Amino acid sequence: MTDSIHNILLVGAGQLGSRHLQGLARINIPVSIEVIDPSEVSLRTARERFTEIAKNPYIREIRFNTNGNGENSAIDLAVIATGADVRADVVTALIGDKQVRNIILEKFLFQRESDFERVGALLHERQVKAVVNCPRRVYPFYLQLKEILIEDGPINFRVDGSNWGLGCNGVHFFDLFAFLTGEYSSIRIDEVLLDNTILESKRPSFVEFTGSIRGANGRGDMIEISSSIEPGTPLHISIGTGTRQIEIQESAGTAFFVKNHVGKVFQETFTVPFQSQITGTVAQEMLMNGACSLTPYKESVHLHLQLLKTLLAHLNNVSGKQYENCPIT
């Protein structure tokens, strides 16, 4: 284990950012952490949540600031947990001002199509390694499930439930679909059955969508994500193959496996890890290896753009306007 101290910058200390900080508080290599957020309230929450974690001798220093891009000129790892509306500007300002080695970006990445190319070009130019926090691919249950599905061939992947935030969270399930099938570049959206009512998000100034989106990939795997405006249905994932059916209820931590030719039902229980249990591990992987198990930026961009273009086109069609950005986060 190296004795050098790694500089970590966390930008955004809101609900999710503060959970990232709790994860970083569990890291097992020497680090200096700086947290930046313009809101004193958010910084206070982050401080409180940081102190909930047992004191860690590997945290050599921690600072909280409301302004700027941090005090260090060289950043070994930046975690960008801002809203999607400002994330592209935050990333470009940070990379333009600092020497940054690695970045973990929150989803939904950006609201404008042009931002993906702008940020991607800068990451390439400055040789910054970037990943996107779609963490289901690091859940132990889905890692095991991927191994099971390898022998089954194409899958039919469905997600449904009530008001689960299709706009904000849909990319999580497209990412899980890509992870389980091993395909991402050939994923496409084939059918859009979104509702004409655009909803206000729980987060001010953002919107949400209900209805269904269907797609597929070049291997023949199929995906459908559906969010109903009617309340009362928990989020549910269904995966069908030629040999088995799998029904997953993450909130209950249960999965039911049915072999098609036998009909026998096997139940497995699992635990969904919190973000505070994930960030420290993936951050340490990036700092030590320059890579981690989260989604590489290039792969995630393709999935994000498939959804962004679909949602923005629907928003413009329903509103009769020509927005350049889709206000999801």
Rank of each mutant, 00 (worst) to 15 (best):
A255S: 14
G83Q: 13
K259G: 00
F206Y: 15
V91T: 11
Q15I: 13
F50A: 05
Q22T: 01
F50I: 11
A313I: 01
L193P: 00
G232H: 09
N133L: 13
P140C: 06
K129N: 14
I278M: 12
R63W: 01
A216R: 15
G242P: 05
E285C: 03
S185A: 14
S186R: 08
H304L: 06
N156Q: 11
S18F: 05
R101F: 07
F108M: 13
F141N: 01
D152Y: 05
E113G: 00
F206I: 10
N289Y: 12
I187W: 04
E61M: 03
L77F: 11
G96Q: 07
G182Y: 10
C134D: 02
G253P: 05
I104H: 06
N316E: 02
S18V: 11
L123N: 08
A54S: 11
F141C: 02
V100Q: 08
K129F: 12
S226D: 00
C326F: 02
E299R: 12
Q322H: 14
I53G: 01
K129H: 14
H314N: 08
I80N: 04
V171R: 04
V35L: 02
I198N: 05
V159T: 03
L305N: 10
Y58D: 09
E285W: 04
G167P: 03
I29V: 15
E324H: 13
I239N: 02
R47W: 04
A46H: 06
Q111M: 05
Q267I: 13
R49A: 04
L21A: 03
T2S: 15
D190R: 13
K264Y: 03
H172Y: 08
A81P: 03
Y297H: 12
V262M: 14
L294C: 04
F174D: 00
A54H: 05
N56C: 03
R49K: 15
S4A: 10
S228H: 10
L105P: 06
D3I: 10
E268I: 08
V119A: 06
S205T: 06
K146D: 01
D85I: 04
R26A: 06
A25V: 06
V128W: 06
R60Q: 14
N28D: 15
L235R: 02
A46I: 12
M286H: 10
H6A: 12
I198R: 09
S42G: 04
I59T: 06
E224M: 13
L199A: 04
E268G: 00
D195W: 00
G165D: 01
D3H: 12
T281S: 12
L24V: 12
T82R: 07
N169S: 02
G14Y: 09
Q249E: 01
L180D: 08
F157A: 03
S226F: 00
L311N: 04
I62W: 01
A25K: 09
V282Y: 13
S4M: 07
Q99E: 11
E230I: 15
T241Q: 07
F209I: 01
D175E: 15
